[in-house]
């Protein structure tokens, strides 16, 4: 099947007089890890918020096609339907776990729709009817599986807010994966991680990809991006300036110019050429 999983066409997002994203087009192919990079303020998170329904784009089209051929136009779908029907999951740049709930509860909330397809079944569950108990056993098994994968099984009954930062990042990814997505959108998952944690994250993303879930990634850690991406889209000032595989993007003069910056004073990232083998973390 050749139709891309996610096809963004002429996406424009304006906030008053500010154009955050300007006629952006790109695609994310099935089974690939697609990275969106660019200097701070390039509009990466805005693109994410449009795809996941938190912003309604000013114009443009965001089409998602499932492996079974079901097609969704994400720009007109209500926010919760994007996760539920179109099966797009996301994490947040500033971690948004349910801090006062346990690690296990976080993963069960993510499986809410499997446990409770509608309000009536939710109320029936109070009386022990409607197969809630069996559904919950399945959900707990699934959660246990993910906790095992991210090495948090021993901490399953601890509040999520008490976990160390790196664990919280991984838990947020596991929580998003518990919604059984076809596309996982990660907003700077490596931010604040030390090099070893970044490596573990890269490994985790590779296994997620191997399981058949496509990944859309915003990241400043060039080490991670260059190592695991199949495809990179580079944004600057809301427009696409480069698009291709890591080798192509790394060599693109316009990318280097954007990162070294004639005008981008606030983000003096190390030029991409300086990390030829991807072993260095370039993010600050």
């Amino acid at each position: 099947m050749d139709s891309p999983l996610l096809q963004v066409t002429d996406l424009t997002m304006r906030f008053g007089g500010l154009t955050a994203v300007n006629a952006l087009s790109f695609e994310a192919r099935r089974g690939e890890i697609t990275s969106v990079i660019g200097p701070n303020g390039a509009g990466k998170t805005t693109v994410f918020n449009c795809i996941t329904g938190f912003y309604r784009p000013t114009s443009g089209d965001i089409a998602l096609t499932h492996p079974d051929g079901a097609a969704f136009r994400l720009q007109i779908l209500p926010g919760h339907r994007i996760a539920r029907r179109a099966r797009v999951a996301r994490t947040f740049q500033n971690i948004r776990l349910f801090a006062g709930m346990t690690v296990l509860e976080n993963l069960l909330v993510a499986q809410h729709n499997a446990l409770m397809p509608n309000v009536a079944s939710g109320l029936l569950a109070v009386f022990g009817l409607g197969g809630h108990r069996a559904a919950e056993a399945v959900a707990i098994d699934r959660a246990r599986g993910w906790l095992d994968r991210i090495n948090l099984l021993p901490r399953a009954d601890d509040p999520a807010g008490a976990l160390p930062y790196g664990d919280q990042r991984r838990l947020e990814i596991a929580r998003a994966m518990c919604t059984a997505p076809v596309l996982l959108c990660l907003d700077e998952p490596a931010a604040g991680l030390n090099p070893r944690e970044s490596d573990a994250l890269a490994e985790l993303l590779k296994t997620i990809q191997a399981d058949g879930c496509s990944v859309l990634l915003i990241e400043h850690d060039m080490g991670v991006v260059m190592r695991i991406s199949d495809h990179i889209v580079v944004l600057d000032h809301g427009s696409r300036i480069s698009d291709g595989d890591p080798a192509h993007v790394r060599a693109d003069p316009s990318v280097i110019a954007a990162y070294l910056g004639e005008g981008d004073e606030d983000d003096p990232d190390v030029p991409l050429a300086a990390v030829p083998d991807g072993s260095l973390a370039a993010a600050s």
Partner: peptide, 15 residues
């Protein structure tokens, strides 16, 4: 309870 903790996260999980 999840709603009390974080409404935006709830939306992102399809609730």
């Amino acid at each position: 309870e999840a709603l009390r903790e974080d409404e935006i996260a709830c939306r992102s999980l399809g609730i």
